[in-house]
Design a protein around this nucleic acid. Structure first.
Length: 874
RNA sequence: GGGUGAUUAGCUCAGUUGGUUUAGAGCACUACCUUGACAGGGUAGGGGUCACUGGUUCGAAUCCAGUAUUACCCACCA
């Protein structure tokens, strides 16, 4: 059957993916082989594949497929994340469209909606990963809210709580009044916004003194519990210790002094509102001030706001202005630009708020994470530069606020039986009840216990991922965790180095006393050609699935990997996929060419084929060596580029051209079988990048193979002769010169020419190659002087020439030679001056000096020849 | 404001711990080729004072200091 001229990626990709799945090629179970494990960074369960995922998962697949071919037990665990805030926000929005307010329905009802939503839209991304060719063990697919995963998270909470690492405390948190939840510091975006700076008058009790205070938030005066100045500020020295009167509410508050206050800013006076500003909160703690919370959960004023009670904070700000002016308490108002924190999800202005939250103590448990990455590199980062980011965060770590006022997630396993401080930590109500009655002898009934309404931060489940997917939290001694853990590589973006990477490292040492992975490969951010981040708003992100459909998964994978060194941002452009597609086309056509060569058992192997095969074998092994070493250092783009050049240039442009039988003729059996062997080796090294194409070709090659390439073995490193490879480079150069000559003289490609060489330096091997590819009739030994005019090729120490006829453009030839002469004289001069430098001679190592001396000899030789040619021409 | 990187050809980047020519690759570009696998191809070619200024060294794209530009991270200024 003839091979179709077009590579039909859509059908072929579908065909092979089903084949791989049906034959369970990605399945992994513990055995006596060395494990190679990667856990996927779980994408948002309802998310869709974007360019970032494509890049990230292509890299993982490349690593996994190569490991599999290296004979390791490759296990890539897929899964999805419940992404509590993002998913809950979507569900709430969807309910809103149906006219349902989340606050009007019960927790269970809401969760039912959320599960419906998840079932409807969830998991799509995993199907998309299959289209990309990802070789995950799909039987292991996990979801962070699966029963076993859920329980693992609760158990982890319990363990940490029992160790005294989890505590409940008052903290200043970021309150999102729209979502009615706390958001982590990381989920707040600060945006520069135009606002006003209000100058308010605070009178001093029993005196005619007054203080002018500049604030951007006059509505918070209801929560003022002090006025603060810098102790060094002479202007206000006399007022320290007195009482100031807060405008409108007329409350008396102390005037205190603290160096925190900037003398230069505003008037040098600061109103202190501990309940609504993080710095004021810290001041309040230091000076033992009262805390007055003036907002309700919507960030509307509460009873402390007096006649403004129930009104929105921004409305109050405007309305107060009139009242302040009327009472002559507003001195002035000026434009002011400052940063306003907004919620990443709802975009509403964040309100700092005092709240009782659950925290995880971070100082002690982070120690192994510092030592094992920064001090002894038990975990390696690629690229290394991210170690400094990591270090900075760990050394300034704060306790982790792990509770979230949401429903979608792991409900905090705390059961209250009395006031806030009377609770039991248990993974179920039954367990809590049992504990209460048996251990604490409380004699409670089921209804006496109420579970904490909050859920845990999403990252509190993610940080256990490499352990929990192997059930290592619930069953720390099970076979799977013992076999697969620690995993080998983690591939993720540097933007979640704190959220996720660092925390996984912390949890790994905390729960298993062992690192979670050995290497972390950080991908860059995928941007468009203008360096803009890809985003929905900008509409500059290509549709990932469309790309796969149009170009084929292999081409997209190649396009993504062509220029994405670890840690570098990838400036994506569709032309990269086109380049990938051109490459698939090139390889496909190599197959078609080879397939068309019939063998003839009668033909003896020509010398030229033997030379070429020997060369390509050496070249392949030489390239394989650098491919392997680049893989070890995660230089994946370099791996692809060397494979690309090996296949395109060395294999297709040179090797196949040399072997190509004359039109209508056949190829000898030995050459053909060697060729196929080498072609298959090429396919193997390209397979991690182009799994579908390589599999298809592998099965199309003559002498059909029974085993798929996916589970074939990676080529063995063989010895190679570098001298032989270098000699072939000279051959290539000679041929190149011949082509150049033909072009100048307008001689058609295939018109045979005669080439001469001077007898004193008989040319090196590969004569047959020069003859065949250069269409050289014969190489004749002769002296240049025998001809009136010649064109010389001096390559290394070998000199060839072609006789010229009288009509030749002498001047341009002489010009060219002069240019070359000039270059060589300049070069000689630079080397010579180096060698004349006494300091160089006395300090440089002998090898370097010898090398320089050799350069002199070579260059002088060259100059001599060029000069001779010039004089012969003129 | 604090921190960490980056700056090499039109573009994207290598340059592996200072010495293989007077710095490389891919893409793009230019000229020529309707060549029997591939025009999604072939052949040949042009293009860089390695951001700038000093310093260390026999020798610097590579090490050090400063300047400029830029990216990211952290903190958020009443």
């Amino acid at each position: 059957m003839p091979i179709p001229s077009k590579y039909e990626h859509i059908e072929i990709e579908k065909k092979w993916y089903s084949y791989w799945m049906e034959n369970n090629l990605f399945k992994s179970i513990p055995n006596d082989k060395e494990p190679f494990t990667i856990v996927i960074p779980p994408p948002n369960v309802t998310g869709l594949l974007h360019m970032g995922h494509m890049l990230n998962n292509t890299i993982q697949d490349i690593l996994v497929r190569r490991a599999r071919m290296l004979g390791k037990n490759a296990c890539w665990v897929p899964g999805t994340d419940h992404a509590s805030i993002a998913t809950e926000a979507k569900v709430v929005e969807n309910l809103k469209e149906k006219g349902i307010n989340k606050l009007d329905i019960s927790r269970d009802e809401f969760l039912k909606y959320a599960w419906d939503w998840t079932e409807k839209y969830g998991g799509g991304i995993l199907e998309q990963l299959k289209m990309l060719g990802c070789s995950c063990d799909w039987d292991r697919t996990k979801f962070t809210l699966d029963d076993d995963m859920y329980e693992s998270v609760l158990i982890a909470f319990k363990i940490l709580h029992n160790k005294g690492l989890i505590y409940r405390g008052y903290r200043m948190i970021n309150w999102d009044p729209e979502a009615k939840t706390t958001v982590s510091d990381e989920e707040v975006n600060y945006v520069e916004e135009q606002s006003n700076l209000y100058y308010l008058k605070y009178k001093i009790v029993d005196s005619d003194q007054e203080m002018i205070i500049a604030t951007t938030r006059p509505e918070t005066i209801f929560g003022d519990t002090a006025v603060c100045v810098n102790p060094k500020d002479k202007r206000y020295k006399s007022m320290i210790g007195k009482q100031a009167i807060v405008p409108i509410c007329d409350r008396k508050v102390p005037v205190i002094a603290d160096p925190y206050v900037d003398v230069e800013f505003g008037t040098g006076c600061l109103k202190v509102t501990p309940a609504h500003d993080i710095n004021d909160y810290n001041l309040g703690k230091k000076h033992n001030l009262d805390t007055i919370d003036i907002f309700d959960t919507n960030a509307n004023l509460n009873q402390h706001g007096l006649h403004y009670e129930g009104k929105n904070r921004f409305v109050v700000r405007n309305e107060m202005e009139d009242e302040l002016i009327k009472n002559k308490l507003l001195i002035k108002k000026e434009n002011y630009v400052h940063n306003v924190g907004r919620s990443e999800r709802t975009n509403s202005v964040i309100e700092p708020k005092i709240s009782k939250q659950w925290f995880l103590k971070m100082d002690e448990i982070t120690k192994p994470a510092i030592i094992n990455v920064l001090e002894n590199e038990n975990i390696k980062f690629f690229p290394k530069k991210f170690k400094s980011t990591y270090k900075y965060w760990l050394e300034n770590i704060k306790d982790w606020n792990i509770s979230r006022q949401l429903s979608w997630g792991h409900q905090i396993p705390v059961f209250y039986y009395g006031n806030d401080d009377e609770y039991i930590v248990a993974t179920s109500k039954e367990e809590a009840l049992k504990k209460a009655n048996e251990d604490l002898k409380l004699n409670l009934k089921d209804s006496d216990l109420s579970q904490d309404q909050d859920v845990l931060d999403t990252w509190f489940s993610s940080w256990l991922w490499p352990i929990s997917v192997f059930d290592g939290i619930r069953n720390p001694d099970n076979e799977e965790i013992k076999y697969y853990y620690p995993t080998q590589d983690l591939v993720t973006g540097p933007d979640i180095i704190f959220f996720w990477v660092a925390r996984m490292i912390i949890s790994g040492y905390e729960f298993r006393d062992e690192k979670p992975f050995s290497n972390v490969y950080f991908t860059g951010i995928v941007r468009d050609k203008l360096r803009r981040k890809m985003s929905k708003q900008l509409g500059n992100s290509p549709d990932a699935i469309k790309l796969i459909e149009e170009y084929g998964a292999d081409s997209v994978r190649v396009g993504l990997m062509l220029s994405s060194a670890a840690g570098n941002d990838l400036l994506f452009d569709e032309s990269l996929c086109q380049q990938g597609k051109n490459f698939t086309n090139k390889i496909w056509n190599a197959l078609r060419l080879i397939d068309g060569w019939d063998t003839d058992l009668q033909i003896k192997q020509p010398k030229v084929n033997e030379l070429a095969i020997n060369w390509y074998r050496n070249k392949f092994n030489n390239t394989l060596e650098s491919i392997d070493s680049n893989f070890e250092s995660y230089r994946i783009s370099d791996v692809l580029m060397s494979s690309y050049k090996l296949i395109w240039d060395d294999f297709c442009s040179w090797f196949l051209e040399i072997l190509k039988p004359e039109y209508g003729k056949k190829i000898d059996q030995k050459s053909k079988s060697d060729l196929i062997e080498l072609f298959i080796k090429n396919l193997k090294i390209i397979h991690p990048f182009m799994p579908f194409l390589s599999e298809e070709i592998y099965h199309n090659i003559e002498g059909k193979v029974s085993k798929p390439i996916t589970i074939s073995s990676w080529p063995n490193k063989e010895e190679y002769d570098i001298q032989l490879i270098n000699n072939f480079e000279i051959t290539k150069e000679i041929i190149s010169q011949i082509r150049n000559y033909r072009k100048e003289k307008n001689i058609p490609f295939k018109t045979p020419i005669k080439l001469y060489c001077i007898p004193s330096n008989k040319p090196i091997g590969n004569i047959d190659v020069i003859k065949k590819i250069g269409f050289v009739e014969d190489i004749i030994e002769s002296e240049k002087a025998d001809f009136a005019l010649v064109k010389s090729f001096i390559i290394k120490n070998y000199e060839f020439f072609i006789p010229l006829d009288e009509g030749f453009d002498k001047d341009s030839e002489i010009k060219k030679l002069n240019k070359e002469l000039e270059y060589n004289i300049g070069f000689l001069k630079s080397v010579d001056s180096k060698l004349k430098n006494k300091n160089f001679i006395s300090n440089a190592p002998k090898e370097i000096i010898d090398k320089e001396k050799q350069k002199i000899i070579d260059t002088e030789q060259k100059i001599k020849s060029i000069k001779k040619s010039i004089s012969e021409l003129s």
